[in-house]
Each structure stands twice: as C-alpha cells, then as structure tokens.
C-alpha cells in the first residue's frame, strides 16, 4: 500500500518509491525536492528562512535554505544516492501579504528563492523545474516514479512540473 509522506514546516524527510512525498501550504517558505533519475529514493525539505548565518538560534537546520539543503544531500548520500546524480524541483517563495508601507517582511519569499538557488548552484545540483514567487500558496506532491511535481493552489487547476 503506497503512502504519502508528509513533510512539516522546517522539516525534511526521505521517501522511497512507490510512496509519494508532500508538504502542505507553502507560502513564503520553499519546498525543495531532491531526486535522481535512476534512484527510487528521493527527499524533500520545507525551509522557511534564507540563511542560517543571519540567525543566532540555528539549531534546527531544516529551517534554513542553506543548511536544510546541505543536510538533505547528506541524508540521501548516506542511503546511496550520490550528490552528482541529484536533480532539484522547487516551489514556493510567494509574497502573501502586500503592505502599503515599506517593510522588509514581504520580501522573505524572494530572499528564500535567491538563497535556495545559490545553495543548489554551489552544490552543482541543477534545477529541473520550478514554480516560485507570485502571491499564492502552494501544496506540492512529488511522485518519484514519474519524477513529476504536482503544484496545487487554492482556486486554481493543478500544475504538473
């Protein structure tokens, strides 16, 4: 019986085929799926802040783009999915609230996208598909058999990337 593995906020998990892996209600947060074309094991991390280096309290490494992705790469590597074979699909980084006054709160989504891309580039992991930015929330489900990421939004048709 296949299951859907649920990744929480500031959380990362691995998933073995035929199970699917999901995270619900991404806003400014980003869901990053790392998988390999040939392997039946993949992983997902749900990050909420761009960098662990800007924050003193950084013990929960899955919370940040930089350490969250690095740790997921390590988790996969320990199970035999080598870094060189990894591919990424990413979604999220929306700006949910638009303030009339200047405020840096709104830009956390944009900063998350930038940091995720920089971290993946530094690890030489190509981004195969992405659905980022804009102003709406996303639920994502990854199927490691078809290697497709389904992006579900409120009041919109599903998007498969």
């Amino acid at each position: 019986m296949e299951e859907i593995i649920r990744v929480g906020i500031a959380d990362s998990k691995l998933c073995k085929t035929p199970d699917k892996i999901t995270t619900v209600g991404l806003g400014s947060c980003i869901g990053i799926v790392l998988y390999s074309a040939t392997h039946d094991l993949c992983g997902m991390v749900h990050i909420m802040l761009p960098s662990s280096k800007e924050i003193k309290n950084n013990t929960n490494r899955a919370k940040f783009a930089d350490t969250g992705i690095e740790d997921l790469v390590k988790m996969l590597d320990q199970k035999g999915v080598k870094k060189g074979s990894l591919l990424a699909k990413i979604a999220g980084g929306a700006t949910m609230f638009v303030f009339s006054s200047a405020s840096d709160f709104g830009s956390v989504g944009e900063r998350n996208i930038k940091s995720v891309k920089e971290t993946l580039a530094a690890l030489s992991i190509p981004i195969v598909a992405e659905d980022t930015g804009a102003d709406y929330g996303r639920t994502i489900i990854f199927d490691n058999i078809s290697k497709k990421l389904t992006v579900r939004c409120a009041g919109k048709a599903d998007k498969v990337i």
Binding site: V24, L26, M48, F97, G137
Partner: peptide, 24 residues
C-alpha cells in the same frame, strides 16, 4: 502599520508570521 490582507491556505498565510517566529 496599515494592515494587509490575504486569502489562501492557512499554512501559506501563516508562513510569514511563522518565519518571523523562526528567527528567534
């Protein structure tokens, strides 16, 4: 500050306040 409004999934809407809490 003047407020802002958003209608969407609770998880997405709450991501901004939660990420502020996540800083500390």
């Amino acid at each position: 500050e003047p407020p802002a409004i958003c209608t969407d999934m609770a998880g997405s809407v709450l991501s901004l306040p939660i990420s502020q809490l996540g800083k500390v």
